[in-house]
Structures are given as structure tokens and as C-alpha cells.
Amino acid sequence: MHSAVHRMNALFTFSVLLLAVLCGAASFLDAFTSPLSSSSSYVRADAQVLRVNRFRKQLNGNDEVSLNLNVSIDMRSLFTWNTKQVFVFLAAEYATPKNSLNQISLWDHIILDKDQANFQTKVNSKYPLIDQGSNLRGRKVDIVLHWHVMPKTGRMVRDKLLLSDFHLPEVYT
């Protein structure tokens, strides 16, 4: 009755069940750790556009912008025992007559450790800001910080914070 196969089956079923329960429990406990439940008030960050490196119209008619930004981030409060990494990125967000919303990631970074979660840096946009069309001259663009908290196991959480806005020049460079 208690054959080896029988025992292995029981052991396997039990271990998978245990892992699933632990995963659920981890998400449940995470809901109580205060930083995650209202994270935007615990994250301190600032980002300003320092310079427009390049602003031109591509051959296909789309506007393309490259920016230089000053970024400072303090996300130490997001790290708990169940945090594997925080994926953080800056997005340019704006509206045009054609599109009610354009969200374009400019720069991203993966924070693996609480010790590395407080820093200040000057960066060039990693991905160019390319519009669908030619609507960027003089356009007001919001710089929004987004973050995505990935747990060791359980539920993933994301949030965002509007940091600053700026106007693109009226003429191409």
C-alpha cells in the first residue's frame, strides 16, 4: 500500500501545494507592509530635462527627440523581505491631436538591492522619443516615474509618480 511511487506522488503533491500556499501567504503578508499599500508617498524622486540633445524629423515624417536628464531616486522603502527587484523607468507622456495618450519609455533601470535604491545620476535617453507623426514642436511633455516591484514569489505591484514637465522647442535642431 505504501509503495515508493505512492510516497513520491504524495510528496510531490504536497510540495507543490505547499509552494502555492506559501506564494499566497507571501502576497497576503505583503498587503500589510505599509510601503506597498501606499507606495507613492514613500518614494522620493526627481527628474528634470537638462538638455535636448537632438530634435529632428525623420525621413518617414515622425518627430524624434533625444534628451539628457538628471534623475534622483530613493526607493529604499519599497524593499521588503519578499522583494526580488524593482524595475524603474522614466516615461515621456503627452497628448496630440491624433493620440489621446502617448507613453514612451526613455530610460529604465533594475534595482536589485536596498543598498542600491538611493542614487542620483545624469543620463541620456536610452530609447528615442519618437512620435507617431510630426506633433512635437512646442509640445508639453510630462516626465513620469513608473516602478514595478517584482516579488520573490506572489503578486507584482506597480505604481507611478508625475515628476516634472517641460516644453519641447518650437524648431528642430
Binding site: K98, N99, S100, N102, Q103, D108, Q132
Partner: peptide
């Protein structure tokens, strides 16, 4: 994969 750009039509 992760979404890096979104354009929503008016």
C-alpha cells in the same frame, strides 16, 4: 515581455 511604448488613438 514588458511594454515600453503605448500610443492610444484619440
Amino acid at each position: 515581455h514588458r511594454v515600453i511604448k503605448v500610443h492610444e488613438r484619440q
